[in-house]
C-alpha cells in the first residue's frame, strides 16, 4: 500500500511546553481519517507539522517529502484549510479564483464555479464583506476544486449552519473523494463526520491514544444498557465509562466480547462521540 503520511517520533516544543510528544503515524492512500482530540491536545500542531508550517523533531514524510523543507513542491499535491477565515480580507471572489487558477496547476475553474453556484457568493464580493460562513464556503470551493492527493481540513465547517455542513460532507464524499485521494479532518462535531470516516485517530496530550479503522472500532467497543440489579456484575468487567439514563446504567467497554455483554443487557455499537468522551474523560479533570 502507498503511504501518504509516515511519522516516527514526531515532537514539537513551544518553549517549555511539549505540544507533540512523540507521535507515530502511518496513513495510506484512499483513507478518510478523522483526527480527533480535545482542545489543546496537539491536533493543530500535528497538522501544521504535516503541512510544513512549523518546525518539528523526529521523522515525518508526506508523499515521500519532508514538509518543512519542501513545502512548495508538496503543495502541488496537498491542499489544506489550516484555520477558518484565513482568506485575506481585501480579496474579491473573482480575484481569489484567478489567483488560485494562476498558481495551482491542478485547479479546475469549472469545478470551483459549480461549488460557488450553490452559495450566495458573487464574483465582486470582498472577503471583508462576507459573513464567516461565506468565507468558509469560498475557501472550501477553492480547495475542493483542486485535484490534490492529500486534503487536510482543520475544523473546516466551523461557523457554518447545519444545512451547509451536511451538504459539505456529502459533496466531499461524492464529488471530491476517490480511492486515489486521502483526506484528514479534524472537527469537534464528531457525529457529523463519523459516517464518512474510514479511520480514526484520537489524540490526547500530544500523543496518539487510539488509532483504528472504523470497522475495528465497531468490534472493539460495545455499549450495554444494564438494569440496576446487574450493575455490579457489569462493573466487574471494567467498563471505560458509565452514565445513567432513566435509572439504568449505560456502560461502555473496550475489548470485551459482545456475547459476554449480551447477558447483561441490551448491547449496541457506540457512536464515535461516546467513545471519544469515554477515552478522553480525565482530560479536564
Amino acid at each position: 500500500m502507498n503511504k501518504v503520511i509516515e511519522a516516527r517520533g514526531l515532537r514539537k516544543r513551544y518553549g517549555k511546553t511539549e505540544a507533540i510528544k512523540g507521535v507515530d503515524l502511518s496513513i495510506e492512500t484512499g483513507k478518510i481519517v478523522g483526527l480527533i482530540g480535545p482542545n489543546g491536545a496537539g491536533k493543530t500542531s500535528v497538522l501544521k507539522a504535516m503541512l510544513g508550517l512549523t518546525d518539528f523533531e523526529g521523522e515525518l514524510t508526506i508523499l515521500g517529502r519532508n514538509p518543512h523543507t519542501e513545502r512548495h513542491a508538496l503543495m502541488q499535491d496537498v491542499c489544506f484549510i489550516a484555520d477558518v477565515a484565513v482568506l485575506p480580507r481585501w480579496i474579491r471572489v473573482r480575484e481569489a479564483i484567478e489567483y488560485v487558477a494562476g498558481v495551482h496547476p491542478r485547479f479546475s475553474r469549472s469545478k470551483c464555479d459549480a461549488f460557488l453556484a450553490k452559495t450566495k457568493l458573487k464574483p465582486e464580493m470582498r472577503v471583508r464583506e462576507m459573513s464567516k460562513g461565506m468565507i468558509v464556503q469560498l475557501h472550501l470551493a477553492l480547495v475542493m476544486a483542486i485535484d490534490a492527493k492529500l486534503l487536510v481540513l482543520d475544523e473546516p465547517t466551523l461557523g457554518l449552519d447545519v444545512l451547509y455542513r451536511k451538504d459539505f460532507y456529502q459533496t466531499l464524499l461524492n464529488d471530491y473523494f476517490d480511492g486515489e485521494k486521502t483526506i484528514i479532518v479534524t472537527t469537534h462535531q464528531v457525529e457529523e463526520i463519523e459516517h464518512i470516516l474510514t479511520d480514526v485517530l484520537f489524540i490526547k496530550d500530544g500523543a496518539i491514544s487510539l488509532s483504528a479503522t472504523m470497522d475495528e472500532l465497531g468490534s472493539r467497543f460495545t455499549e450495554v444498557m444494564v438494569p440496576v440489579d446487574k450493575r455490579e456484575a457489569a462493573l466487574a468487567l471494567k467498563p471505560l465509562d458509565e452514565r445513567s439514563v432513566f435509572g439504568k446504567s449505560i456502560l461502555l467497554y473496550d475489548g470485551v466480547p459482545r456475547e459476554q455483554l449480551d447477558a447483561l443487557g441490551e448491547t449496541r455499537t457506540p457512536g464515535l462521540a461516546d467513545i471519544f468522551v469515554a477515552t478522553m474523560k480525565e482530560t479536564y479533570q
Partner: peptide, 20 residues
C-alpha cells in the same frame, strides 16, 4: 500583514515558494 491577519496560512497552502 499576512501573518497578522493569518492569511499566510492561505498563501502557504499554494505551491509557491517563499523565495518566489
Amino acid at each position: 500583514d499576512e501573518r497578522k491577519d493569518r492569511s499566510v496560512l492561505f498563501w502557504k497552502s499554494m505551491p509557491v515558494s517563499d523565495f518566489q
